[in-house]
Design a protein around this nucleic acid. Structure first.
Length: 325
DNA sequence: ACGATTATTGCGTTCTT
DNA sequence: AAGAAAACAATAATCGT
């Protein structure tokens, strides 16, 4: 992140010496150069493809960079973020939708031609006015949302790369005009959740929405939209995803953990894990693995650490038995 | 603690207007 | 096409051993 900030600094300095009308393009160019250095995904080394909207890794779905220039350049956003963090709470996020003023061109109010100095002056006014609007609306939303994404990411102890993916998702969402009828917080939470899903991390909507203090339905809705819009390569949540955190919470010996993992993978192959609570099934696998080694833990213990009930563990334990080792 | 039985919840489908 | 409802599966709760 330190490097990123350094780049932002330099791009800002460059920008200030240039003609104002080039600000956005140049800021964008800086972003492109710094973020997509090769045709390889920084996350999984997979192949990346670029379409009109963005550059995406084919394997893991990491959005490497967006190709649109109609979003606020990064230095603005982070600039704002620094301000917002210490300033007043965000209250003016959605007050002027559709109420902004347009400055026409060509003719005056009565339809007469306008020429010369006056027209140039109007053009300048129009440019400045639209610019001012951009700053106050979209970029403000972006800064707010990114702040929220970052807060959630650190609250959920996510790696930097996952967090950045979430940020990119959020930006993409804004570019695609997905905010209408949804809250910034909801989209931010959904972005974080989406990034987790795309990386096979064991976070549930519940975990994210709890941290975000947003109704779970909002997050679900926003995530659904994100998914439809971008076709996120999120694999279905599998029990084996929940194995590592669960096992470490229990202080599980390696031997049992490995056995539980093979059990989980076996069950997943057989397709008996669809529609079940993944953490619950993972807990059941750990229980069975422990049982084979001579009752390592009780049902209620694994159930508790997996946030499910002993009953759930039991039912899954049964299906595991039927799987015939 | 574990197993069996009943209750509840969540969710995709289907039927209706 | 949007909403309501009957239906199903999974999870939770409760009781008995």
């Amino acid at each position: 992140m330190v490097e990123g900030l350094a780049v932002l600094e330099s791009s800002r300095n460059t920008v200030r010496t240039m003609a104002t009308r080039d600000i956005y393009e140049s800021g964008f160019d800086e972003d492109v150069r710094t973020e997509s250095s090769a045709n390889q995904c920084p996350e999984c080394d997979g192949r990346v493809t670029t379409n009109v909207v963005e550059t995406v890794c084919e394997d893991c779905g990491l959005v490497i960079n967006e190709q649109r220039i109609d979003h606020g350049p990064e230095w603005r956003a982070y600039d704002d973020e620094e301000c917002e963090r210490t300033g007043a709470p965000f209250t003016a996020a959605r007050h002027d939708r559709g109420l902004s003023t347009e400055i026409g061109r060509g003719t005056d109010a009565k339809g007469n031609e306008i020429s010369g100095k006056k027209r140039r002056r109007l053009a300048r006014m129009r440019r400045e006015q639209t610019r001012g609007r951009w700053r106050s609306k979209a970029e403000r939303n972006l800064a707010h949302g990114l702040g929220e994404v970052r807060r959630l990411a650190s609250a959920l102890v996510l790696s930097d790369s996952v967090r950045d993916q979430a940020c990119q998702l959020f930006r993409s969402a804004q570019n695609e005009d997905l905010f209408r009828g949804r809250s910034i917080e909801g989209i931010a939470a959904a972005s974080v959740y989406g990034a987790c899903r795309c990386n096979g991390l064991s976070r549930l909507v519940d975990d994210v929405s709890e941290m975000a203090r947003v109704a779970e339905s909002r997050v679900t809705n926003a995530y659904k939209t994100l998914n439809e819009e971008f076709g996120l390569p999120a694999e279905p949540v599998s029990p084996s995803m929940f194995m590592p955190p669960l096992a470490s919470d229990l202080g599980c010996p390696d031997e049992i953990r490995q056995r539980a993992r093979t059990l989980a993978e076996l069950a997943e192959e057989r397709g008996v894990t669809t529609g079940v609570h993944p953490a619950g099934f993972a807990a059941a696998c750990l229980y069975k693995a422990g049982e084979e080694q001579g009752k390592w833990v009780t049902q209620s213990t694994v159930a508790e650490t997996g946030n499910v009930t002993p009953t759930t563990v039991r039912t899954h334990h049964e299906t595991l038995e039927e799987l015939a080792v």
